[in-house]
Simulated scan of single mutants.
Amino acid sequence: MAMLIAAFAVAIGGLIWGSFTKGGVGLYADLLSDQVVLRVLWRTVWISALTTLFCVVLAYPLALFLARSKHRNLWLILVISPWLVSIVVRTFGWMVLLGNRGVVNMTLRDLGLIDAPIRMLFTPTAVLIGLTHVFLPFVVIAILSSLLQQDRRLEEASRILGGTRWQTFRRVTLPLSMPGVIGGASLVLLMATGAIVTPLLLGGLRDRMLGTQIYTEIFQVFNFERATAMAVMLLVVALVLVAPLRLLEARIRQTQEGV
Rank of each mutant, 00 (worst) to 15 (best):
I12C: 11
A229I: 09
V232D: 08
V221N: 00
V240G: 02
I218D: 00
A243V: 01
G26H: 11
L108G: 02
L136F: 09
F8Y: 13
A67P: 10
S146G: 09
L210V: 11
L210N: 01
T107Q: 10
Q35R: 14
H71G: 12
P137Q: 05
W94S: 05
I196H: 07
E217D: 10
F65E: 12
E257C: 09
V197F: 03
A192P: 10
A49Y: 01
G24M: 04
I16E: 07
L108V: 08
V134E: 09
G162Y: 04
W42E: 10
A9K: 06
L200K: 05
F169D: 07
E156R: 03
G203D: 09
I80M: 11
A126C: 13
A63W: 06
P61L: 11
C55G: 06
A243F: 04
L154Y: 02
L131Y: 01
R39C: 04
I143F: 03
P175A: 05
I182S: 03
Q150L: 04
R43C: 04
H133M: 09
F122S: 14
H133G: 04
R152M: 04
G258K: 08
L53V: 13
T255E: 15
L210Y: 03
A231F: 07
Q150C: 02
S186G: 14
A67L: 08
G24L: 07
G93F: 05
V139S: 05
L78K: 10
R251W: 14
I114A: 06
G162C: 09
M230C: 07
G183N: 13
A63C: 13
I87H: 02
G18C: 05
F169L: 13
G180S: 05
L210P: 01
R152K: 10
G112N: 07
L235H: 03
F222Q: 02
M230H: 05
L234W: 08
L247T: 03
G184L: 10
G93T: 14
S69Y: 09
P175L: 09
A157N: 07
A67E: 12
K70W: 13
R101N: 15
L121Q: 12
